[in-house]
C-alpha cells in the first residue's frame, strides 16, 4: 500500500477540538494525525470519552475542530459535507416512523433532487445490496432491529457517496446479529469499494473488519496506536480463530491498555 497508488481521502494534521464548558475547557481531541486512503476500512476503537465519535463527527463536518487541519476529498470537512461526500450511519437506525423503508431510503434522494425514476431505481438497488429486497413497502416497526440498521445503511448508500462514516452502527444489536451484519458489511465494502470509517468499542469487530485500526485513548482524546492489519481483504468469519487475527487483537488490547495505564 504505497501512498501514490491509493490517494488519501481523509487527512488529519494535528487536529484538535476543545469544548468550552462551564467547568473549563474539555480537550476532546489533541494532536490527531491520520491518513485514510481510498478503499480503506478504518476502525476507531477506544474506551468511551476517547473522542472516537467526536473525530468521526469532525470528518462529517458536524463538529468543527478548534485547531489543526482536516481535509476530506481535498476539501475542508464542511465543504465536503455540503458536497455530500459521505453517507453517515448513526448508532440508532433513526428511520422516520411515518415513512416506509423505501420512503426512508428515498429521503436523501428527495433532498438532493434526484429524479423520480432515478430514485426508484436507486432504492431498489440499495435494498438488494443490504439484502432487504421486497421490504421497501414495510414500515420500520415491522422490521427487527438488525433489519432497521441495514435499512439505515442502505439509506447512507443510496446517493453513492464514496465515503461511508459509521458510528457504532451495530452497538445496540446482539452478538449473533452483529456477526452476521459484520460479514454482510465486508461483502458490501468489497462490492462497492467505498472508503469506510467505523467507530466501535468491540475488539473482535474492529480486527475482523478493518484494514487499519486506530486505537484511541481518553483525557485528552488522542491516537494511541495505528495498526495496519496483515489480514487478507477476503475474510470468512472463521478467520477470527487464526493466529494472525489473535495477534492483531492482542496488539489492539495492548494499545488500549497503554492508553489507560495512567488512570486505572
Amino acid at each position: 500500500m504505497t501512498e501514490k497508488a491509493t490517494p488519501a481521502v481523509i487527512t488529519a494534521n494535528d487536529v484538535e477540538l476543545t469544548f468550552q464548558t462551564s467547568d473549563g475547557p474539555v480537550h476532546a481531541l489533541t494532536g490527531v494525525n491520520l491518513t485514510i486512503e481510498k478503499g480503506d476500512f478504518v476502525s476507531f476503537i477506544g474506551p468511551s470519552g476517547c473522542g472516537k465519535t467526536t473525530f468521526l463527527r469532525c470528518i462529517a463536518g458536524l463538529e468543527t475542530p478548534t485547531g489543526g487541519e482536516l481535509s476530506v476529498n481535498g476539501m475542508s470537512a464542511d465543504e465536503a459535507r455540503r458536497a455530500r461526500a459521505y453517507g453517515y450511519v448513526f448508532q440508532a437506525a433513526g428511520l422516520y416512523p411515518w415513512r416506509t423503508i423505501g420512503g426512508n431510503i428515498r429521503l436523501p434522494l428527495e433532498i438532493m433532487g434526484f429524479s423520480r425514476a432515478d430514485q426508484d431505481q436507486r432504492v431498489e438497488r440499495v435494498l438488494e445490496l443490504v439484502d432487504l429486497k421486497g421490504f421497501g413497502k414495510k414500515f420500520p416497526w415491522q422490521l427487527s432491529g438488525g433489519m432497521q440498521q441495514r435499512a439505515s445503511i442502505a439509506r447512507a448508500l443510496a446517493f453513492d457517496a464514496e465515503i461511508l462514516l459509521m458510528d457504532e452502527p451495530f452497538g445496540a444489536l446482539d452478538e449473533i446479529v452483529r456477526d452476521h451484519l459484520n460479514e454482510e458489511l465486508l461483502k458490501l465494502w468489497a462490492r462497492t469499494e467505498k472508503t469506510i470509517a467505523f467507530v466501535t468499542h468491540s475488539i473482535p469487530e474492529a480486527v475482523y473488519l478493518s484494514t487499519k485500526i486506530v486505537v484511541m485513548s481518553p483525557r485528552p482524546g488522542r491516537i494511541a496506536d495505528v495498526i495496519e492489519s496483515p489480514l487478507p481483504r477476503i475474510r470468512p468469519l472463521d478467520i477470527r480463530d487464526s493466529a494472525a487475527f489473535i495477534e492483531v487483537a492482542h496488539r489492539v488490547r495492548e494499545g488500549l491498555r497503554a492508553g489507560h495505564s495512567d488512570d486505572v
Binding site: Y86, G87, F90, G94, Y96, L107, I111, M112
Partner: peptide
C-alpha cells in the same frame, strides 16, 4: 439531535427540514 444531524449530513435546507422532518 440525531435526526437533525442526519439532515445536516444531507446538507438539507431549513425548508426541507420543516417539510420532511
Amino acid at each position: 439531535a440525531m435526526q437533525l444531524d442526519l439532515l445536516r449530513t444531507y446538507n438539507a435546507t431549513p425548508a426541507q427540514g420543516l417539510w420532511k422532518l
